[in-house]
Design a protein around this nucleic acid. Structure first.
Lengths: 89, 89
DNA sequence: CGCCTAATTAGATATCCTTCTAATTAGAGT
DNA sequence: ACTCTAATTAGAAGGATATCTAATTAGGCG
């Protein structure tokens, strides 16, 4: 997890929308994908970037992958940058 | 000014570093540029993106352009996104 | 096992981003 | 007007990103 990966992940509107949806609670990849006018593979790539930044975590439930928002990472990164603090050593 | 332009602007480490430097007070384009291992035209492009997002404002002083941090825009955008609020209508 | 659904990975293409050098604009001073 | 310094804009090259279709992995169930 780097501050770089986090801001990189936040730079795309689709990925920010994904985070907003997850705010209400965990959702499967398919349920998330249904909300966009993009193919599932495209969404998978966006999920991967969010995972890389550790802004979301995944849990398997049968054949589905359930995505959870990692609010603490998001909060630390954004409020940390607002205060111009360095990331935790 | 759009939330999109703001997160786009924040996505590059050089631009985030520029904002950090401006935290301490206004600086000229040249003074900012001296801190990076990049040419001045390259920095100019980064400045332009920050202006576009209205994260900085510019004021001319003789032949120099002085950049100021627009803290309120940054704060509203980041804390707004953290709270998952919509941007001001 | 064979098949169906859910999702990701691979490969290809088009677009966007970053960076450079060269050219241009703008102000100050002689 | 000329020249010097400060900075931006233009144009081009290279690398990275987003998106699609096709192929692959993984789990559940008859």
């Amino acid at each position: 997890m780097t501050i770089n990966a986090i801001f990189e992940a936040l730079s795309h509107p689709v990925r920010r929308d994904i985070l907003k949806m997850l705010r209400a609670g965990p959702l499967s990849a398919g349920d998330l994908a249904r909300n966009f006018d993009l193919t599932k593979p495209t969404l998978s790539v966006h999920f991967a970037k969010l995972r890389e930044a550790e802004l979301v975590s995944v849990e398997r439930q049968g054949t589905s992958l359930i995505y959870h928002l990692n609010m603490s990472i998001l909060e630390e990164a954004l409020s940390g940058f607002l205060a111009f603090k360095e990331p935790k050593p």
